[in-house]
């Protein structure tokens, strides 16, 4: 039972963070609060992908003793690399892209929030809906 919890608690961690973000997106009425919830949600998804790249007792995916080999020609370079010694680099690459896209989404969302504030002079969702109904 204890081993099962140690092996699986990282999934429960990201589920909890995702639910916190989703709760903020659903119930908070302030638009900036909704955007903060969206940020937490996306971080939780990235957390899930990164934690799928972990192997027990490995180091960062930068190959050791590889500097300077390229200067001496490629025949020294093709020594065998033990893949079990390094973390899985593929989720890191995908999540590097996802973080930058996350900030792009954040910028567009904040621009839309500023536009809404310029038109209705408030950021609260219920007041915006009332103003739309009044027009």
């Amino acid at each position: 039972m204890f081993d099962f919890i140690v092996d699986h608690y990282n999934y429960w961690t990201y589920i909890g963070l995702m639910i916190i973000g989703f709760y903020a997106m659903m119930t908070k009425r302030n638009l900036i609060k909704k955007i903060i919830g969206m940020n937490i949600f996306q971080s939780a998804i990235i957390f899930f992908f990164i934690s799928s790249s972990v192997k027990k007792g490995v180091t960062v995916p930068i190959l050791e003793h590889a500097h300077g080999h390229a200067a001496h020609g490629l025949e020294h370079v093709t020594h065998a690399v033990d893949a079990m010694q390094y973390a899985n680099p593929l989720p890191h690459v995908l999540m590097l892209t996802a973080i930058v896209v996350m900030v792009a989404t954040l910028g567009v969302a904040l621009a839309v929030a500023i536009m809404i504030y310029r038109k209705y002079h408030t950021l609260e969702e219920d007041e915006i809906i009332m103003a739309i109904k009044r027009d």
């Binding site: 990235i46 990164i50 934690s51 790249s53 972990v54 490995v58 180091t59 960062v60 995916p61 930068i62 973390a87 989720p91 890191h92 999540m95 590097l96 973080i99 930058v100």
Partner: peptide, 11 residues
């Protein structure tokens, strides 16, 4: 701590 240093400094 999870050995994803590129993601860490991008974050």
């Amino acid at each position: 701590e999870m050995a994803a240093i590129d993601v860490a400094f991008t974050e």
